[in-house]
Every structure is written in structure tokens, then in C-alpha cells.
Amino acid sequence: MNFHAITHLADGNPYLLDVNDLVVHFRSGRQRPWTKHAVVHAVDGVSFRVRRGTTFGIVGESGSGKSTTAQAIMRLVPATSGQIVFRGEDIMPLTGEPLRQARKHLQIVFQDPFSALDPRRRAGDQIREPLDLLHIGARSARDERVRHLLGEVGLPPEAADLFPHQFSGGQRQRLCIARALAPEPELIVCDEAVSALDVAIQAQILNLLKKLQRERGLTYIFISHDLGVIQQFCDEIAVMYLGKIAEQAPASTLFTEPRHPYTWSLVSAAAPPGPLRDALKAKYLVNGEPPSPVNPPPGCRFAGRCPFAIDQCRAQQPHLDAVGPEHFVACHRQKELAGPDFTLPAL
């Protein structure tokens, strides 16, 4: 796919991140001592580019590989192959000091604010950690910076002296955001960062993330299973299924003209209650659950559940083809299948 040609223009390159054919395979247990290890195909050839200052959403169900993709970009899980071009440099081969330096610009916020903070260290020390480790700023100025960061995420400066158990879930997520902001990164990966929070708190955190993006020109990769959140929060969205991107489109296109049957199923499941939802569900909601990523089906990953699958789908893997401006679909039948009609009159 020529779309993924790598540009090494550090200046004037609109893309902050260019992920090229990322593959992450894990070795899992073996059936018998003499058989080979089973291989989990967590991420199987994923490519996308993220524009500076925008939010790139990855949506999918459990086992789709969306979190593994995020953590592989962070170099927190070892990738099997592929390129991660970040700020014009492939960070995949980096180790040691250069990798540490690259991490300055690349931070992550996790899903569970309870396991993401060290219970035995004060909040302030944890926000300070990246500053100390990466030698950012004068030692004496770091405490002041921690207090400033706390203010930016809406916490009082006294919070620095407290331990994580003294905070609520939403406050902990604010601490995690402050920690991610500390080294002044350009890209923050939000790995289901609001999924574990109550709706009211979720809205607070989403608003906070948007405010920070506006003020600092941050770029986000936003991982979520919640289509409503993804639609509102992201500029571009990739729909992942079983380790591959099924469809990728700008947020406005994906929910007006979705082209992949899996996207149709997701949309019908998440549509607001009403006759439209009932009609969509009847036609597009698929049954069952994704197959195991240990032995993914040979053809299209979705073929086993897809109501529109034909023989070709089960035999041959589809490519991610451009179907419109910035709109890519991996489906053999994308030309012949008509998308869902969202204009069904409300009764």
C-alpha cells in the first residue's frame, strides 16, 4: 500500500506517528511437551498514521488487539515486526538511552486508575518520577512543576503529599494524567482511560483531556470500546477486529457511511434506543463472539460471524483499500454491499 510510504520529513510533516505493518505475536502454552508453542496473533499487520494535534481513536472489542497496539507503540510490549516512526524516527530498534529519550515525548494513561499508581509512593513523587529519571528541569524547580501540573488537572497542590489510596477513582485518573503530562510529551496514548470511571466522572476526564489538547497541542491515541465516546472525542477512527484494522475513517464519515459489516454491527449495538436501533439490530447485529486469536481464520477475520460472507471471504484475506477521502475498508464485498440506511423514519 503506497499510502504507507514513510516520510522522513521532520519539519512540515503533518504526521506525528506512522505505524507501519505492526505485528505483535505472543507465544502461549503448548498442548503437549513435544508440540510447538501456540502463537497468539494479538496484532497482525496494523498500519496507520496520526496527524499532529489530532485524536486518533481505536475501537474494538476485547481481543481485537487495540490495547496491545497501543502498548507496542509505547514499546511496553515487544513487537514482532513493523515500524513505528515517531517524530520522523523509527523508534522500534531503539534501546537503552535513546529509547528513554524518545519516551519523553510519548506517554500513556491506563484504564484502571487503581493499578496505575504505586500504592507505596506519594502522588507528588510519582508525578515527579519522569522529571527525575529523564533529568528534566532543574532539581529545585521540579516540586514547583509538580504543583503546577496538579493545578492543570484540577487538583489542589496539597495532593502531592498524599498517597494514592486517599484519592477517588476520578482523582487518581487526574494524577495519572498529570504524570503523563510531566515530561511535556507530544503524544499521549489513552488506553481505555475513561472506561473504568462512572459516567459523571468520565465526562469530567474527557473534558479535561480536550482542554489539555487545546492548550498544549497534544496528539492523542484514544483506545476505547465505547462508540459514543469514540465518536465525540476522536478525529479519525480505526475499527479493529481480531488483530487487524477492519475500517478506518474520519469520525464524521464512519458514522454516516460505514462500509464494513463489522462496523455496522458495532453501530447497531450502540445505537440509541428506538425503532432505528431495532431495525439496525435485526439486520446487522452479529451473534456470538470473536474467535480466539490463537488460530485466527485464514480469510477475513470477520468471515465466521459476518452475515454477508461468501466463499472468497473465508479463503482470502482482504486488503485495506481506500474507498473515499481518508476512508479505508478491508472487505471483499465493499463495492457490492450497500451500507445501512440511517434515515429510517422514527415512528
Binding site: 486517599q166 484519592f167 476520578g170 462512572d198 466522572i201
Partner: peptide, 24 residues
């Protein structure tokens, strides 16, 4: 979710003091 310091997760950007004295 309710443990610890309360009522200071105010709207982003505002820094309100904890509502009750916090054991340091």
C-alpha cells in the same frame, strides 16, 4: 470511589481546597 479527600475534584482548571482537613 468515595474514599479519602472529598469534594475537590472540581471542574477542570479550578483548584479548590479540600473540604475537610486532610491527614498529611
Amino acid at each position: 470511589s468515595d474514599a479519602g479527600i472529598t469534594a475537590n475534584a472540581a471542574a477542570p482548571g479550578t483548584t479548590s481546597a479540600p473540604a475537610q482537613p486532610v491527614a498529611k
